[in-house]
Design a protein around this nucleic acid. Sequence first.
DNA 1: GGGTTACAGTTGAAGTAGCAATTATCTACT
DNA 2: AGTAGATAATTGCTACTTCAACTGTAACCC
Lengths: 174, 174
Amino acid sequence: MASPLLDDPRLTAVGLFIEAHLGLTARLAPRFAEYGLSDTEVEVLLRLARTPGGRLRMTDLSAQTSLSTSGITRVVDRLERTGLTTRVSCETDRRGTWAQITDSGMERIVAVLGPHLDDVEKWFTGRLTAGQLDALTEALRIIRDAVHPDAVAGAADAAKTAADNAAAGAAAIS
Amino acid sequence: MASPLLDDPRLTAVGLFIEAHLGLTARLAPRFAEYGLSDTEVEVLLRLARTPGGRLRMTDLSAQTSLSTSGITRVVDRLERTGLTTRVSCETDRRGTWAQITDSGMERIVAVLGPHLDDVEKWFTGRLTAGQLDALTEALRIIRDAVHPDAVAGAADAAKTAADNAAAGAAAIS
DNA sequence: GGGTTACAGTTGAAGTAGCAATTATCTACT
DNA sequence: AGTAGATAATTGCTACTTCAACTGTAACCC
């Protein structure tokens, strides 16, 4: 009755991957909640905070995160409602909208980042030797590049976006 | 304005982890859908299929998967509606319910497993050298054991459950 | 230029998840 | 035996996400 496939080591490997991810994110989420954020909101704020100019098009956000454009619309709705981001309409393409992180948003994400990194250290990076961490990171990068090419394409777009942002100047930062 | 924390390498490591996981599961899901299953349903069927006797208490399923007991109730509802599992009331504890995989459920999970493993090979294990895969697995196991101790405790319970199942005999298998 | 096609973002509807409350049952203590 | 507290499973409610449909704008091609 039992198929040998049920015990395939590849199945164990994926299972381990999924369990580790699930458990880790479950450990990290409470800290975000403490600062009034969900993991999705942190992801969006982080992307914006790391982008020169602090803003990104809705579509770019969608490509860089785990969310559909529809999902992005709604996260940005929530973030805007709490004053952490603002929508800025795009001058050169009137279909477009920038999601712009506000000063308040930047303060919030920077505030949560310290404790968050402590959590990461405690549950993830601190559990591994430097060699193990390097090996893990390398393997993850290979997988990521294979399964999520958009992130790479998005990086190319990001360069263009950064250039646009630079052109737009610092006046619009908040 | 930009905090140095925004570029912390630990942040990159977690990000890579999350992106790789997200991308991988996104690549694997369409195959499940092809067989009329969601990833949650596959997870539940797989746990049942691997358990001697093909059945597990709702609570055990909850501990071993990514779902709350409430979530398990609903997944098993769906699986039961499509005839892939059945509920069997527990003789020795009348509060309890077994989720029992049916012949149909077993056929379905075994059928999807072959193509699924091909996908896993294509997007995950096949991209890494044997050494890289070992290193990855080892690191993941360390993380998993740290963040998801329930899985270990659940294993102890599973031994007990297996004993119960053996006692119940083969008559109830389908 | 005028029309077709593609794209950015939003919205409505539906599905899936968790939390908290509820019911039924078990365990332990006196 | 009887009561108090824990536990198993389910259900109501709410929040979040996606898919598909829609609006407005841009790009292309004749």
